[in-house]
Design a protein around this nucleic acid. Structure first.
Lengths: 223, 223
DNA sequence: CCGAAATCTTACGAATTCCTTACGCGCCGG
DNA sequence: CCGGCGCGTAAGGAATTCGTAAGATTTCGG
């Protein structure tokens, strides 16, 4: 069963070339001839993405950024720009490799193979909001790269908010979702957890209060 | 805390440059100024290897070949030869990346980072997490190169965790998978096995507890 | 500027969860 | 039959987390 590879490349010739080589190597490529903004819904179920940064319309770097919000799929970036700043940017944004055009397709295939023989960390979806990073799989949270230890409820609460970053959630729905119905917890209880959570996350209150409604996950920057 | 990186590079200037940058980035580099044949014993406990292919004496490609016999550690290859055939060869031999000189150290650091943010579960049946090595095929476990004898259940438990290094698994799913339904074992039983396992693996608790959830396989270094 | 309502913070006791040790049972090889 | 070994159970104790109360603080409407 070949692994699935999504190729996002507008150049007809290069794209066809890549797709063919990948097929020959036993993979199952899908070819998108134009860039689209990605979301959890529009991203097909693939094992790796080959992404050309120079696409008409959408800027590839934005696609990458979008992608990393909800997916940890390995990304191999292609670009005509042989510029260290660009490479660094792409890698920082979560790319796994960066190839400069022109290149020989053999090398691309080998690099794809090199990525795929490593485990991908079964998409333990990671949410990043500003300097805050929430890893649902590992149940880990870090702020500015530093680990923050959270209790179970604190994590659940944060994870609930992180599902829709920026959107407000009512106290009642949060309580319903986070608090165990058995262990009777009032809504007052939430306040306490929020308080403790904020203290742990440090200043730059990521958990913002929406007065009279509930809470919201902010990027801890503006305000 | 910082991941360990072995730099094998004979060029004084370039080597110093790389080492410095890696330090700045929070890694702990070790610098070998000459190539040596590697064996299970001589390879220090590192998380990644930066290997220059053009070394006096030993041919870098051989070092890589040796290495892959007994270790799945990620390898980033450096070379002055910008030749597709060479790249393909190195990648086929198990290299994870190939950079052509000259390059800017920033890019190297980013590529190192890109490799290390992925889990290192090797292909095949060998998993390496930090100083811990789990060989599913041979049912062998070693810490820092030293064999550790585990009972069947202890091994099963560890292997289950090792399937997703770093991810938290619930106690119930672990119990379900590891414990024999016949020999009814309560979830308390898990505690005991974990306890015994930890004692055998020594300090640097590889098996981390995720309070209220279950356990997780850590690299036994941070904290 | 005032009061009421909503929210924040802190401290503390209780409950949960987890760790460890000790012990007994059953299986196997000698 | 004996001893070693793997495994499950029980129990005490340690560590962590959770809920509540109560007082402080903030927000909003007027």
């Amino acid at each position: 069963m070949g692994k699935k590879v999504l190729v996002i490349e507008d150049d007809q010739e290069l794209g066809a070339q890549i797709v063919k080589r990948l097929c020959d190597a036993g993979y199952e490529p899908t070819w998108w001839k134009e860039g689209r903004r990605l979301s959890r819904e529009t991203l097909p179920d693939v094992d790796l993405v080959v992404l050309d940064l120079m696409l008409p319309g959408t800027y590839g770097m934005d696609i990458l950024k979008d992608l990393r919000v909800f997916s940890e799929v390995p990304v191999l970036v292609l670009s005509a720009r042989n510029d260290t700043a660009d490479k660094v940017r792409a890698l920082r944004l979560g790319a796994d490799d960066y190839m400069t055009k022109p290149f020989w397709p053999e090398e691309l295939v080998e690099r794809v193979r090199a990525r795929l023989r490593r485990p991908t960390l079964g998409r333990g979806d990671v949410v990043e909001v500003g300097a805050l990073r929430i890893d649902r799989g590992r149940r880990e949270v870090s702020v500015r790269g530093e680990r923050v230890e959270l209790t179970r409820l604190e994590f659940e609460f944060l994870a609930a908010l992180a599902e829709r970053p920026g959107e407000a959630m009512t106290r009642s729905s949060l309580a319903e979702r986070v608090l165990d119905p058995e262990r009777d917890g009032t809504e007052r209880t939430l306040d306490v957890h929020v308080s403790r959570l904020r203290k742990k996350l440090g200043r730059g209150a990521f958990v913002e209060t929406v007065w009279g409604i509930g809470y919201r996950l902010g990027d801890g920057r503006d305000e």
